[in-house]
């Protein structure tokens, strides 16, 4: 890639990124912003649907973050090794917002190992709102509604 092309790519990235993503439902009605989670496992499905895309992961390790107020920030992790992987579902932005962030309906393939960072559902079920997904060492931003809805 020539220097000029790299620069164009960089600018295109900026232009795409500054189209902010999706405010849809009320984030706080469904998710708890104080319950940070980080989970690793294998993708089983990606539901490329409006108003939010969702994906399911067979989780092999799940970490719960410390409360915002705790100064000593340590994650508490539980490993599912030896046990059956556990199905979790994670919410993404809507397909239009994800497309502007560079996603497509093929961005997560079944069986791929991913690490998801986000926040947990309020009701304690195995659901989360994803902020980012690391797949093959690349971080995809998920267009979380956390910052844009009450």
């Amino acid at each position: 890639m020539t220097t000029r092309n790299s620069f164009v790519t960089v600018l295109a990235g900026a232009v795409m990124a500054v189209v902010p993503v999706i405010a849809h439902h009320s984030f706080s009605a469904e998710f708890d912003a104080t319950k940070e989670i980080k989970a690793t496992g294998k993708v089983t499905t990606l539901e490329w649907t409006n108003p939010h895309a969702w994906f399911h992961v067979d989780i092999s390790e799940i970490c719960e973050g410390p409360a915002e107020s705790e100064k000593n920030k340590t994650w508490k992790c539980a490993n599912a090794s030896g046990a059956q992987p556990v199905d979790w579902a994670f919410e993404l932005a809507s397909p239009n917002g994800l497309m502007r962030l560079g996603w497509s309906r093929n961005s997560l393939k079944n069986g791929e190992v991913v690490t998801v960072e986000g926040t947990r559902a309020k009701d304690g079920s195995r659901k989360g709102n994803a902020r980012s997904v690391v797949v093959n060492g690349k971080r995809l931003f998920a267009g979380s509604s956390q910052a844009s809805t009450p």
Binding site: T9, V10, A12, G13, A17, G102, W103, S104
Partner: peptide, 13 residues
């Protein structure tokens, strides 16, 4: 931002 996202924006959708 470009650096952060270029990995996914190379094939912008």
């Amino acid at each position: 931002i470009g650096v952060a996202l270029s990995v996914v924006n190379v094939n912008a959708q």
